[in-house]
Computed example of a mutant assay.
Amino acid sequence: MHKDTIVIREIEVEDNPKIAKAIRSVLVEMGAPKVGTAYEDRSLDAMKETYTDLKKAYFVLAQGNEILGGAGIAQLENYNGNVCELQKMYFLPEARGKGLGAEMMKTCLNFAKQVGFDHCYLETLPYMKDAQKLYEKVGFKSLSEPLGDTGHYSCTVWMLKDL
């Protein structure tokens, strides 16, 4: 697999089952609980339909007809403030270690700025250290408690970035 054959693009309807399978596969691989994480989100099987509002977008890593991962931006749920959330950023093993995470972050954060968000929030699992390093590298800072209520109570690492 060559990085130059992988594109970042907005999700399409036919990508729905592929991204759902990829995300669930990564969560299982990482030993994440199936409850209190994205694994059980109903939106996971209808990502294109979930990210249709003007201030929402979901991007996938595509190589031909294969979907290798993705990430999205949406208003932070149950929170009063101009804060978006980086959502469901997961990559299959073959897409890791190639700089694609940084490219995906750039795409998502640029979208968030373009639609007028002031801050970007995220939640992750404490043992997803590589992801946390990437988030810190692009300017996310750790928080001592969550913002809003995403329903992902198993994710106990919270971070915020000024846009």
Rank of each mutant, 00 (worst) to 15 (best):
A131P: 03
I73G: 04
E85P: 09
G101F: 13
K161P: 06
T107E: 15
R96V: 07
Y153M: 00
K113E: 14
Y39M: 01
A74T: 09
L163I: 15
Y79S: 05
V35G: 03
F117L: 09
G139R: 05
V13A: 11
A95W: 10
V26I: 13
T156R: 14
R96D: 06
Q114I: 00
K161D: 01
W158K: 00
F59Y: 15
Y79H: 15
D4V: 04
V7F: 04
F91G: 05
K113R: 14
D162S: 14
Q63W: 06
L54Q: 07
V138W: 12
L134G: 02
Q114W: 00
G116K: 03
R9S: 09
Q63I: 02
M47G: 03
D15C: 12
Q75K: 15
M1L: 11
L163Y: 03
K129W: 07
D118R: 08
W158I: 02
R96K: 14
V28Y: 01
G97R: 08
T52S: 10
Q87L: 07
E10F: 00
R24V: 07
K133Y: 08
N16I: 07
Y127S: 01
L92K: 08
E77K: 14
M1N: 06
D4G: 02
D41R: 02
M128F: 15
A71W: 03
I23T: 15
T5Y: 07
Q132D: 08
A74P: 00
L125I: 12
Y79N: 08
K34F: 05
T52L: 07
T52F: 04
Y58C: 05
V157H: 06
K129L: 14
C84I: 00
G70W: 02
D45F: 01
C155N: 12
L27F: 00
D53P: 00
E94S: 15
P93Q: 07
F117Q: 04
I8Y: 14
K141S: 11
E145K: 14
N110K: 12
M1R: 09
A57D: 01
E49M: 04
